[in-house]
Design a protein around this nucleic acid. Structure first.
Lengths: 201, 201
DNA sequence: ACAAAGATTTAATAACTATCTAATTAGATG
DNA sequence: CATCTAATTAGATAGTTATTAAATCTTTGT
């Protein structure tokens, strides 16, 4: 994780209105007008804050007709915090150690792929350990085109190349921020948003 | 933890210069001029940032002659993060659940004291589990007077009422923010700074 | 296809914050 | 006490951010 990411994560949480917003969302999804009313601010203010929270990947959005529903991104909420301490303490180490870590991660990654994928490139089964699951999901999702939108049917077909349980995997793609859905179409998220095992303890 | 605390914690970390400052301190303690030089800012700027970090209890300060040495407060750095998630998720719950938790905590606290203290009020031994250690330390430190300063000798004598290893316990008092040392004298910190097991996972 | 209603976004402004220079305080030392 | 060193305060400025009023975009009824 680089400096800017850490800063924008903390900036996102460094505001009373935004924190109250997250508390409200902990109850379940809400749209902009509802939030504005409960928070005692104008809808425009909610848009502004939503943008900040989105940049830090702390919320998800779902469009239905002309209203946008916000919800918590539990994954980032839990994991970004630990990343800060990592950043501060690891920052003190020499470059060499970081590179050694990168090498180590590549090794782990390769071994996970080798273990969970057949020679023909099929997924044997979905790993249950989060770390391994993320590696496999990233591997699969890399087969999709950046910037292009897909119908649900297309996505299902694509996933079936790897595994029959396309519903589960499609859901995991969304949950871990590899893709997002908008107006019934699916699209890859920018890579910086992808949930990566490197950021886990 | 209340809203303001959470906000000021994140505000403290929501700035590039302050984060770089913490990274430098991860290497060991530094005074203001050193920090200014390494960061490429004026001493005045360092003072400004130190104030923000101090408010969030992320650093400690020690005066020697006329120079002030800053160091990391490892405890808060590690534990404040988890508190944020707690705040967001717990905030959504009803009051009742919080009170139930308070009751539960009191029960645990009493049982720990009963287990580690003799009938005569001596400490059998220092708990190794952080949670339990904090409970015991808070129990002991409560015997000191707020606002009064103590010499090291006085502190040692006081601790010996409970346990022979006064050196270790004195160090723990500082480490967990129950007390601070200034010009060879010891004094209680305000209670809000005390490291408390309730804030642990 | 058009107007009204509903929901969100843009543009302007007011409040805040990081940074610097200059002046001041506090402690140590000859 | 004069001087040196380190840190803080005050005042000024530039850049950033929270908030709102007005404009834009979406859906729906006619």
């Amino acid at each position: 994780m680089q400096l800017d990411k850490v800063v924008s994560y903390h900036k996102a949480l460094a505001d009373t209105t935004r924190l109250r917003m997250l508390v409200l969302l902990a109850d379940g999804e809400r749209n902009g007008l509802e939030l504005a009313e409960k928070l005692g601010v104008t809808p425009a203010t909610v848009t502004h804050h939503a943008a900040k929270l989105r940049e830090a990947s702390l919320i998800n959005e779902r469009r239905e007709k002309n209203t946008i529903y916000f919800s918590l991104n539990h994954y980032f909420l839990k994991n970004s915090a630990a990343a800060t301490a990592d950043f501060i303490y690891r920052g003190a180490n020499a470059r060499g150690e970081l590179n050694a870590m990168d090498a180590e991660q590549t090794k782990i990654r390769d071994s996970v792929i080798r273990n969970f994928m057949t020679k023909e490139g099929k997924l044997k089964h979905i790993p249950s350990q989060l770390k391994k699951k993320l590696i496999v999901l990233e591997h699969i999702v890399s087969g999709l085109e950046k910037g292009r939108t897909y119908t649900e049917k297309e996505i299902n077909e694509f996933i079936k190349q790897y595994h029959d349980d396309f519903a589960t995997i499609r859901r995991e793609f969304i949950m871990h921020q590899f893709m997002f859905r908008e107006q019934e179409r699916y699209e890859l998220n920018p890579e910086e948003l992808w949930a990566r095992w490197e950021s886990l303890a």
